[in-house]
């Protein structure tokens, strides 16, 4: 994880306001302790495949979804 001092970027993660110093979606997943989990991500309503998370830069106001498997009917 990045250690330099950065001002947090205000984004929305799973519907909740969130300030983050993560520069990319991959860093955000890491920051939330989900790197080892099978999760799927989307930004502003668009799917972001796992391989593109490291190059997906976070911008103020981004709406991020981080989803994982659940029960379903």
């Amino acid at each position: 994880m990045s250690v330099e001092t950065k001002s947090p970027v205000d984004i929305v993660v799973n519907g909740e306001p969130h300030g983050t110093t993560a520069a990319t979606l991959a860093e955000l997943v890491h920051e939330r302790g989900l790197t080892e989990q099978r999760v799927a991500t989307a930004r502003n309503g668009d799917f972001v495949p796992e391989r593109e998370r490291a190059t997906t830069e976070l911008r103020p106001g981004d709406r991020i979804e981080i989803l994982s498997p659940r029960h379903g009917g």
Binding site: N14, G15, E31, R32, G33, L34, Q37, V39, A40, E65, I66, L67, S68, P69, R70, H71, G72, G73
Partner: peptide, 10 residues
């Protein structure tokens, strides 16, 4: 099955 929001460290 479905997909739902995962909490931090979930």
């Amino acid at each position: 099955v479905s997909l739902r929001r995962e909490q931090a460290r979930g």
